[in-house]
Structure formats: C-alpha cells, structure tokens
C-alpha cells in the first residue's frame, strides 16, 4: 500500500478521493519513531499532524505517583489513527503526550501546508474536519462517561443511603 492509499484508509482522511489523498501524500513525509521514544509532549505547541502507518503509539498523561511524576498510558493507537489533531484545532496545544509503544512509522504534515491545501480545495477540508469532529466527539463522550462513572463511585462511597 502506497502513502496515498494508507492515508485514504485512515480515520481522519476517509472519504477523500484518490486525487485528494495523493495531494495530501505530496505535502507530508514519512517519519519513524523508535519504541519508547516520545513523539510529542503534553502542553507543547502542536504544529504537526501525524497519521500512524505502522506500529503502535501510546497516548499518556503525567500523574504524581508516590512523589514522582510518571507517564500513565490512557490509550494505545494503531495504524490509521491520527495523532496531534490539536494541530488543526486552536489553540494548537497538545493535550496528551505520545510515546511509541513499538517501532512506528508515521506520516506527518505541518499545519501550514495542510491549511494551504484546503484553501485550494475547501471540500477536502470539510471532509477531514467532519472526520476530525467525529474523533473529538468520541473522545469527549468517552471522557464524559469515565468522569461521570468516577463521580458516581465517589458519591456512592461517600454518601451511603
């Protein structure tokens, strides 16, 4: 599978036609991350968007454990999933860190080049941003469900009827 086909099969770029995914492939470049390597860190500026082509990547957040900050895995993502979508969403600040769980291959795009492409082809931007809204909506719903369940447990333990 070439780069354009891999991108077309990804969650973020599904629905694009072959010409559009080809133009996307032209403005991106393949990068590699070794197992254990941090691809980006939480709180830093997101200026690049990544699609996982192979391998797996863990999203982590820092937690104080017994007096020491540790990176705790929230989710493991595999091929076809997007990383650092904050690059497309103001204020462009990364909300989690990403660490390669295995040797991984990514396809990376700088925000400026992606936005320039969408100015030429607004329909492509609409398709991708619709896909991105679905990704963000799922994350929000998931976080809400986890939060409400945690609250429910705390209420049940603190205020026994």
């Amino acid at each position: 599978m070439n780069a354009a086909e891999s991108l077309k099969a990804s969650v973020l770029f599904s629905g694009l036609d072959s010409g559009q995914s080809g133009r996307l492939a032209d403005i991106g470049r393949e990068t590699a991350a070794a197992a254990g390597e941090f691809i980006f860190k939480i709180g830093t500026e997101a200026d690049k968007l990544h699609i996982i082509i192979s391998g797996s990547v863990e999203l982590t957040f820092p937690l104080l454990v017994m007096g020491e900050i540790k990176d705790v895995r929230f989710q493991t993502l595999e091929n076809g999933r997007a990383l650092a979508w904050s690059a497309l969403v103001p204020p462009h600040i990364l909300t989690m860190s990403a660490r390669a769980a295995t040797d991984a291959t990514l396809y990376s795009f700088t925000r400026d080049r992606v936005l320039a492409l969408w100015r030429e082809d607004p329909r492509m931007g609409l398709v991708v941003m619709t896909n991105l809204a679905r990704v963000i909506g799922s994350r929000l719903h998931e976080a809400q469900a986890l939060w409400v369940r945690e609250l429910q447990r705390n209420v049940s333990e603190t205020y026994r009827g």
Partner: peptide
C-alpha cells in the same frame, strides 16, 4: 512500587 502503581492504573 511506583511502576506497580502505574501498571495497575493503566
């Protein structure tokens, strides 16, 4: 240990 706590959290 810290690593055990992280493993259990994950």
């Amino acid at each position: 240990t810290r690593d055990e706590v992280v493993h259990e959290l994950q």
